[in-house]
Structure formats: structure tokens, C-alpha cells
Design a protein around this nucleic acid. Structure first.
Lengths: 143, 143
DNA sequence: CTGTGTGCAAACTCTTTGCATAAGT
DNA sequence: ACTTATGCAAAGAGTTTGCACACAG
């Protein structure tokens, strides 16, 4: 579904939240506008929390976590299993893959045009595919 | 390099460890034989720890972590970034990919014959590829 | 009003670290 | 002997939970 939220961001964010069965509270609206303001992003709970505090939206970290998970469940975000401890959330829910820059811990989208998945292997008995994640790990060329 | 460790597991494990610059201590030998006894495996530190205790090798969890990381650095293991908190170590160091069964948190190797990576996308300026990880997330068919 | 959301702090899980003791060469 | 590993317990990072208060409908 598409809501043209370019016209009035706050109003349609409210609609999106309502549509997802989430009450459009101050915090959720604020977080949603931070998350979805700048197009595709990858962020951790910590990052979003700091960003919120930075623009004087004093949410608690717990609420950030709750909100991110609620948005994920609503299909507005996607969890990105990259590495170790930190969980990243991806605002691009469509089918695409990722570069991951080691050292920087930076996640970069791979445009979905660059089709890469060739023939899938046979899936084990009684199982079905949820999704296919490709992560290309990069390092800076020493130079 | 290949050492035929089928002949006498303990002796050649010692050699492997020595070759990696690791002193072949009781704990490392015991853990190595648990890890490499049964062919390709995916295990977490917790699992290995319990397994060790189960066969009366009383190592501490800290030592298990240390050992797994040392083995990884020595190229005998590979870290598997699957999901969230837990770190999995893969005894299959060669080029291959994985199924991940959601719910069970089970990791299954995809035989490297099933080539899947087609055309890789252009790599960002100044970067080089470390490796390509493909994880196919599965769920049990409800039935 | 009524129910859901939020903030806080405490709890939890996985992992790492510091330091005294034990073991390898 | 001399050096490196180990064990323990404590610290650390990231995430979650429980409960009183606040807010949306």
C-alpha cells in the first residue's frame, strides 16, 4: 500500500501508524518522522535514540526499542542481521541486499537491479523460504 | 595445507595447534577434538561449553570463547553472523552458504556446488570484497 | 473514563577482561 | 625457570521487562 506522505508528513504518518494498529502517540510520530524522513536508512536503536535526543524528542531507549519492533512487525521496517551484537533496522523493506563495511560497521544498500541470486539450492523437506539475505563484506583497500 | 589427522587424531591436533602458534594444552586439544570430530558443524560457545562438560572436560566458558576466537584467527573456524545475539562458529572454512531455520535457530550448510551468486554488483570506490555471505532463512511449513 | 503507551530502573543474555594460579616447553 | 593459558568472578554491551504514571480516544 502507498500513502503519499509527501503532502503532509505528520498527518500521513498518523495514518500509517493507525493503519498498523498503533496509536499515533507523540513519540511514535516523532520517531517515525526521523526514521522515514531521509529515504532509505539503516539504523540501530542507539543511533535513533541519540538522534531523537538531538532534536529534543526525549524518548527513552526502551521506547525506541519497543517502537522499532512494533514498526518491524507492522512491515514498515526490516531487521538486518549483520554482525555480532548490534541489531540494525532497515527502512527499505523491498527486496534488496547489502554491503557491510568492516571496521566502519556501515551498511550500504545494493540496488535491487543488480540481480545476483542464480539458481537456488533445493530447500530441505518440509521447509519454505522466508527470505534470502546476501551480505557482501567489504574492507577498505589499503593504499 | 592438509594434515591427515585421521591416523592419530590427538597427535595431529597437536600439530595443527602448534602450526597455528597455539600451545597444545589439554583444553585446546579437548575442544579441538570435540569441534572437529564430527565433520562440518555450527556451534555457539555455550553449546561447546556444555558439550565439553558433558564429556568431563571441565573448561571454563571464558576459555571456550578464547579458544574459539584463537581457532578462528588461525583459520580453523569461521564466524557466522546469523541473527541477533548469538555468535556461531562454522567448522567448514571453505566457500559455502547457509540455510537458517527460524524458530529452531538451526544452521544448515548449502553445498558449495549449488552455485548461486550471479553477477556481483559494482563494489564501491576504494573497497574490496572480503567475502560474500548468503543466508536463506527458512521456516517450517505449517501443515 | 478506559486502555494503551511511556519512562525508569532493574534484570537478562552473551561476551570480554583482569588477575592470581596452573600448566606447557 | 620462564612464558603462556586457564579459571573465576566481575564488568561490559545490547536488549528486555515490570510496574507506576501519563496520555490518546
Amino acid at each position: 500500500m502507498h500513502i503519499s506522505y509527501e503532502i503532509d508528513a505528520d498527518v500521513s504518518l498518523q495514518e500509517r501508524l493507525r493503519f498498523a494498529g498503533l496509536r499515533p502517540t507523540r513519540q511514535r510520530i516523532a520517531l517515525a518522522s526521523l526514521i522515514f524522513a531521509k529515504g532509505d536508512r539503516h539504523l540501530s536503536a542507539e543511533e535513533l535514540h541519540e538522534e531523537a535526543l538531538g532534536v529534543n524528542v526525549p524518548v527513552s531507549l526502551a521506547t525506541v526499542y519497543n517502537t522499532l519492533h512494533q514498526f518491524t512487525q507492522a512491515g514498515m521496517l526490516r531487521i538486518l542481521a549483520v554482525e555480532g551484537a548490534k541489531t540494525y533496522f532497515d527502512t527499505n523493506v523491498s527486496d534488496h541486499h547489502h554491503f557491510f563495511v568492516e571496521g566502519d560497521n556501515e551498511v550500504i544498500d545494493i540496488p535491487s537491479g543488480s540481480t545476483m541470486v542464480g539458481n537456488l539450492p533445493p530447500v530441505p523437506e518440509g521447509m519454505e523460504i522466508v527470505n534470502v539475505d546476501i551480505i557482501i563484506r567489504l574492507r577498505k583497500k589499503r593504499g
